[in-house]
């Protein structure tokens, strides 16, 4: 895409956001009469307890809710995948060797040992550890 074409399709982001809000607000306010009065929850209902029952699909709650045990497990797997991905992205490799992963204070790994400790500094002849 050339520069002239890019400038032709460029729009002001602020105007776009305000216009979208205007459209959404118009739709919401025009259909507000169709919304029922909020039912709310019983005053004596334990909301957090009922959410806990819903998460584990126990079905003993007093407030209407569906069971979410399968969703709970799938989200757990997704969080695990995200944690592994973050660790994978954060590690640093040099010639196929991990030079930094999950070390304290950003210290580098020298010969399999975390740099910055007295032993590794003595072995490697380093004055100090860290990235600085």
């Amino acid at each position: 895409m050339s520069d002239s074409e890019e400038s032709a399709v460029a729009i002001n982001p602020g105007a776009a956001a305000v216009a979208l809000f205007g459209v959404l607000a118009g739709i919401i306010l025009s259909s507000a009469a169709g919304f029922p009065t909020p039912a709310g929850f019983p005053a004596d209902a334990a909301i957090v307890t009922n959410i806990g029952y819903a998460l584990f699909d126990i079905g003993e709650g007093t407030v209407p809710v569906e069971g979410f045990l399968a969703t709970f497990l799938i989200i757990g797997i997704a969080l695990d995948v995200a944690l592994d991905s973050a660790v994978y992205l954060a590690k640093r490799e040099d010639d196929g060797t991990i030079i930094s992963a999950l070390t304290g204070g950003g210290n580098e790994v020298v010969d399999g040992e975390v740099a910055g400790t007295a032993d590794t500094e003595a072995e490697a002849g380093l004055d100090h550890g860290g990235d600085d």
Binding site: G40, F41, I75
Partner: peptide, 24 residues
Amino acid sequence: LMWGNLTGQTFALFTIALAAAEVA
């Protein structure tokens, strides 16, 4: 709140968890 049903609140918790994964 409108329907007096906790499904929305429970689902919001899942969305928060997914947002945390996305941030990681």
